[in-house]
């Protein structure tokens, strides 16, 4: 049986740095929502992840 960590956050892209603290994944800052979306799209494609929206200015790229 292969053992793998599934369903974890690969990266976060935030508008407001104060919303995220510490943690085990890289956090990217974006100037505006356009840059935020572009960065998260690229990260999702590169990391084979899916972009999710917390609706508070935080987008996260998650592996399912």
């Amino acid at each position: 049986m292969d053992v793998a960590i599934k369903e974890f956050i690969l990266a976060m892209v935030v508008l407001d740095a104060g919303k995220v603290q510490g943690g085990g994944c890289p956090v990217f800052h974006a100037e505006n929502s356009q840059e935020q979306q572009k960065t998260s799209l690229y990260l999702a494609r590169i990391l084979d992840g899916v972009v999710h929206d917390l609706e508070n200015g935080v987008l996260l790229i998650c592996r399912h």
């Binding site: 979306q37 799209l41 899916v50 972009v51 999710h52 929206d53 987008l59």
Partner: peptide, 20 residues
């Protein structure tokens, strides 16, 4: 519903990007 995709009243998943 915001970023939550629904079919009628059933929650399917969270979709992050507006283009998607």
């Amino acid at each position: 519903d915001g970023s939550i995709l629904k079919v009628n009243d059933v929650v399917i998943k969270n979709v992050g990007l507006p283009a998607e």
